[in-house]
Computed example of a mutant assay.
Amino acid sequence: MDQESFFQRGKSNNKYWFGISINLLFIVFEVICGVFAGSLALVTDAIHNLGDVLGLVIAFVAVILIKRKPTKHHTYGFYNTTILAAFTNSLILVASLAIVIWEAFLRLMNPEDHVDGWIVVIVALTGVAINGLTAYIFHRGSKRDLNEKANYWHFFADALISLCVVFAGFIINFTNWVILDPLVSIFAAVFILFESWRVLCHAFSLVTNGVPDNISENEVEKYLLSFPEIEKINDVHIWALSTTEVAISAHLQCNRPADYMKILDDATDGLRKKFDIDHVTLQLETSDKKHKESKI
């Protein structure tokens, strides 16, 4: 069975089970190597990797909750749990990178007397493989789902840091320049931090009911006003129900109320096809009615 069918979203949660399992195994492996080599850095990195697994578990819980049917109390269901998961995961990632940078600075100020470069290389290579594979299985979904995008960047960041550590370990073996270990960690962490910050800002925007980045409110209004029957648009609200589903509500002022159903159907169908807005709620008003704008 190929990667796409095995991890296909909607039919199974294999990608989450797989990611959580192999990363837990890697944490155990890293702790054993750290204790055996007497390396505090490896043990610390294992603790950091626990944060990765926690983020993956949070995302997995959101994927399970999103499948629950709406209730009278949660009329939209639990779709927004994926937004909360993406935001939490992004927070964990940014915090983890900040910790990596801080620890690297501490090691710059107080370099270790001896670093077993070969053990570092072996563990880091394993980390590249595990984190790289985990990032790969979430890469396809990251193009359309912010929750999976957060997962992807989380593990891509770790894979890149591990790759830098591999090169540093090789150089340390031949030169004993132990200062390279924290330097490459800072370089990789800062590089990833820029993209991670964008993901965090995007997730925060969705948490606070911001218009999704792939939709322009001006373009939506321009499209609706292209209908000859629609004179004015009031109370437009566009927000994300989840990391993949978008909703809109608006009052449309029309000069031909007799065409009510046709206008409603055409506008709703157009919003879904042109802007990929799933949940459309439109209210038509006659031109002679004085609209009372809501507070929000």
Rank of each mutant, 00 (worst) to 15 (best):
F170A: 01
D276V: 04
A188S: 12
E217F: 01
R144G: 15
V35N: 07
T88L: 15
H73R: 10
N147C: 14
I233E: 10
S12Q: 11
L146N: 08
A247T: 07
G19A: 14
A189G: 06
V57S: 05
A188V: 11
C201T: 14
R9P: 05
F26G: 06
I137G: 00
L180P: 05
G141M: 13
I186K: 08
F36T: 08
V121S: 11
F155G: 03
T281K: 02
E195I: 11
N173H: 01
R144H: 14
C201H: 14
S185E: 08
E4K: 14
M109K: 10
L108C: 09
L24I: 13
Y152I: 07
F227D: 07
N209T: 01
F170S: 06
Q253M: 12
S205N: 14
T268N: 04
E229T: 12
V28C: 02
A46H: 06
N234L: 03
A203E: 11
H251P: 00
V199P: 02
N147R: 09
A98C: 12
A41V: 02
I92P: 02
D2H: 13
T82G: 09
V220F: 07
I22V: 13
T126P: 09
L93D: 00
L106N: 02
W197Q: 05
N147V: 05
V31S: 07
C33H: 02
V100E: 04
A104D: 12
I119C: 08
D113M: 10
L160D: 00
F191I: 14
Q253E: 15
R68Q: 14
N23M: 09
Q8C: 14
Y16N: 12
K67G: 07
A247K: 07
E148D: 15
F275G: 03
I263Q: 02
T75A: 10
Y16P: 09
L252M: 09
N89H: 10
I83G: 04
F36L: 08
N173K: 04
I238V: 10
S21W: 05
V94F: 11
S287V: 10
G210K: 08
L264N: 05
A59H: 02
R107H: 06
N214A: 09
V236E: 02
L206G: 06
K143L: 10
Y260S: 08
S249V: 07
I99Y: 11
V120L: 15
N131L: 04
V115M: 00
H73T: 10
W177Y: 07
I172K: 05
S294R: 05
R272C: 06
F194A: 07
S249Y: 09
K274L: 11
I186V: 13
K274S: 03
N176M: 00
Q8K: 15
S39E: 09
W239G: 12
K274C: 06
K292C: 05
F105N: 09
N13L: 15
T243D: 04
I172N: 03
L224W: 01
N89S: 13
V115L: 13
W153V: 15
T244V: 12
K290Q: 11
F174T: 08
H202N: 13
D181A: 09
E231T: 13
R9M: 12
D116S: 15
D113N: 09
C33Y: 05
T286C: 14
T134Y: 07
E112H: 08
N13K: 13
G169R: 04
L183T: 03
N209H: 08
